[in-house]
Write a protein that binds this DNA or RNA. Structure first.
Lengths: 241, 241
DNA sequence: CTCTCCCACTTGTATGATAACCGGTCAATA
DNA sequence: TATTGACCGGTTATCATACAAGTGGGAGAG
């Protein structure tokens, strides 16, 4: 046994049914407003029990793809997928990571601009503390990723717009795993790049502290664009003030 | 009977169970990685059948809040809610609409910047056609909302970043309904504001056509910020180049 | 003590039954 | 004729039970 790998666990039937129904809806096979076949009929067509169909439908309801009414049937939602944003990037596809990161650059840049206008005294202090922690780590030839994340999270919160905060948290969660993998491929961080990163952080903070929104946005974009290139995801290729 | 209203339809049990479980997970009552009580136990605790619990669990699985393994049980996901972004604004809360619109300003501004760099000839032609249609409508004292939407959609597509495109479509779908309601509250659009809107559109297009990314971003932000104020959602209060 | 087998527990799936609900038919009635 | 109201077939919502399949631990053999 030379090439052992994780076994492919038998997929749950309801997953498969949900997948197929969702695909049929998204491709327009079932148009918005149209009525789906009854559970009984779907169960026969897929050759599964009605239970399985119901569980699949339950998921589609949760995703707001369909809408069921007792006694009437199940109907494709007027706007399938409204109210729900999902991103399932191919972790191997650099293009996907690049595109998602680009979205983050745009949003977090704007968040920094808002933070420059709105950050409270205590939030500024928190940012300063993060910079301090990172400096200490650098002096000890280490890399305080936690403080880095805290710094960015504080700025997002300081935007005083919960949707910026939530969306950046969301994007971050999706990028973290993929980035960690991408980073392990490239060589370890150059020791001098740590200093560059810290300089960028200082620039962002300085602009926020001075309440200079355009400068804060530009600095954050510069920082994240540089981060993209350091990760081998290519340049931002967007507008730069 | 002076104040008749629609009756409150009895909520589905699985909805309620899913809601309570999701709340328990999000508040940390069930920590990430922790094992949930068995379906049987939950069924007894909620005093419902096991099916209802299973349907609720199915939805939580779909939202990536939990993860079940046959024979083992159900476990809270390591990062509950990762891979899923939902916004359920209170349509009556102006603050929510303001915040979401602000996010749109940031993202669509960046999309315009990217479009200035990347838009193809045919996409430029499409934008021009939309402007033309809107001008015709204005001449006839009408308001071509469809062309307006097409114009914005084309720019999003021209960013050549599918995530910008998808996210803006998502935000648009969520804002449309609320905006329509908000607009009906205020008086109908001033006739002169239509001209202002068109001037803003022309400015955005001109910058894109000239491949001037910063100008395109600034113009789009200006346009959308003005739109926010026209809708009575307050100013953008962010960075402005 | 170690190894193996078995069993309790859990989720996944199937089946059948009942209740609630909906739209339409159609006869009874004013 | 027009309105009402009971009824019917079909559909979803819920329940109950049973069995299959996967997991982990513990009893018992060696």
């Amino acid at each position: 046994m030379t090439s052992i790998t994780t076994v492919t666990r038998a997929p749950r039937l309801s997953d498969e049914v949900a997948r197929q129904l969702a695909a049929a809806i998204r491709t327009g096979e079932f148009a918005p407003g149209a009525r789906l076949p009854s559970e009984k009929e779907l169960a026969e067509r897929f050759d599964v029990s009605r239970m399985v169909v119901r569980e699949a439908m339950s998921r589609l309801k949760s995703d707001e793809l369909i809408d069921t009414r007792q006694g009437l049937g199940a109907f494709v939602a007027a706007e399938p997928g409204r109210g729900l944003f999902r991103l399932e990037p191919d972790p191997a596809a650099v293009k996907d990571l690049h595109d998602i990161f680009q979205l983050r650059v745009a949003v977090e840049g704007a968040a920094a601009g808002l933070a420059a206008v709105r950050a409270s005294r205590s939030e500024l202090a928190m940012m300063r503390a993060c910079l301090h922690d990172m400096n200490i780590a650098i002096a000890g030839k280490e890399d305080d990723v936690a403080a880095d994340n805290r710094f960015h999270a504080t700025i997002a919160r300081a935007s005083r717009n919960p949707y910026f905060d939530r969306f950046l948290t969301f994007l971050g969660a999706n990028l973290h795993g993929s980035i960690a993998r991408a980073r392990s491929n490239t060589a370890a961080r150059h020791p001098e790049s740590v200093l560059a990163v810290q300089a960028e952080h200082e620039a962002v903070f300085a602009a926020i502290e001075q309440r200079n929104a355009p400068a804060a946005e530009a600095a954050m974009r510069g920082h994240l664009s540089a981060a993209m290139e350091r990760l081998g995801l290519g340049p931002f290729t967007g507008s730069r003030s």
